Amino acid sequence: MDLDDELRRLFSDDRLDVHSTPDATEAVVRGAERRRRRRSATTTAFALVVLVGAGAALTQLPRSDDTAGDLLPTSTSSASATTTTTAVSTFTSTATVTVDPPPSSSGSSSVKTETGQPTKTTIPAVPAPPQPQAQPGQFGSLKLGMSEADALATGSLIEPSSAADPENRCKAYATKSVPDANAVIISPVRGIVRITVPGYAKTPKGITVGSTVDQVKAAYPNATQSGSTLFAKMAATPAWSYVFETDGSSVTAVLMRLDANDCSTV
């Protein structure tokens, strides 16, 4: 008997058949159902652990807005006809830290107000003192510093002269426009040291006899006051000043005086 015949004999032997019980099929189905449920439960538990861990990590991160995070996608597991849905919500909190900027190089600083808005403060600049006016010391043909001979040559002086100081060093002259005997004072060294301006004449700033003290100070901001007299320095060569004699409220005389003079009465 060859091998093929022996195999046929064995396969046809009814004693080697495996006979199943009537409930074998149902038992196999129930076992497969239990395995599917265990796998589903394991998958759901793992998804929950991952989602909870992600939510805990997200709560540690700062956010730029104050709204709660959107709900995370749900995890769904199914077994036969039954569906289970689990939702996990995560929320984030925010923290805001404000740092003041360093002071600027210009000297200004920022101050926080109650509303949290920075307010810039600036130190006001100190105004510079008023500068002397630039104007030559001259009225008509007479100039401060002019020698006596040159002054007489203009024809503006009225002779004879008179002593202008107790030492009889300086001479005083009246002029054709101002009959006062001390209208012009001349030093033998400095030349003309003072000129009296006629009452009808006005300075380039509009000041004349009758102008108020306030008008003088407004026209000449650098003017200084000594008693009832105001002095307004001019920027010229030689250096000189306006002298405004007042009665306390208005100008009574306007004079032009050389700053460097050697006549004791000037």
Rank of each mutant, 00 (worst) to 15 (best):
D100Y: 03
D100E: 05
P101D: 04
P102V: 05
P103C: 09
P103L: 09
S105W: 12
G107E: 06
S108L: 08
S108R: 15
S109L: 10
S110F: 09
V111I: 11
T113V: 08
T113G: 12
T113E: 14
E114V: 11
G116K: 00
Q117N: 10
T121I: 11
T121G: 08
T122L: 10
P124Y: 15
P124V: 09
A125I: 06
V126C: 06
V126S: 07
A128H: 11
P129E: 12
P130T: 11
P132H: 04
Q133Y: 09
A134Q: 13
P136L: 12
G137K: 03
G137N: 03
S141M: 05
S141L: 03
L142R: 07
L142T: 00
G145A: 04
M146P: 02
S147M: 08
S147Y: 07
E148M: 02
A149I: 07
A149Q: 14
D150K: 06
A153N: 05
A153D: 03
T154I: 01
T154W: 04
T154K: 05
S156L: 08
I158Y: 00
P160T: 10
P160S: 10
P160A: 08
S161G: 13
S162T: 11
S162L: 07
D165G: 03
D165P: 04
P166R: 14
K171Q: 02
A174C: 10
T175N: 05
T175I: 07
T175R: 05
K176A: 12
S177R: 15
S177Q: 15
P179V: 09
A181Q: 02
A183H: 02
V184T: 11
S187M: 00
S187A: 00
R190S: 08
G191D: 02
I192R: 00
I192L: 03
I192Q: 06
V193Y: 05
R194Y: 10
T196R: 04
T196G: 03
K202D: 14
T203N: 09
P204F: 11
K205A: 10
K205C: 09
G206F: 09
G206W: 07
I207R: 14
V209Y: 02
V209A: 01
G210Y: 05
S211P: 00
S211W: 01
S211V: 06
T212E: 03
V213G: 11
Q215R: 06
Q215A: 14
Q215M: 09
K217C: 04
A218Y: 08
A218I: 06
A219I: 12
Y220K: 00
N222R: 09
N222H: 07
A223W: 04
Q225V: 13
S226A: 15
S228M: 11
S228C: 10
S228Y: 15
L230P: 06
F231N: 06
A232N: 01
A232K: 07
K233W: 07
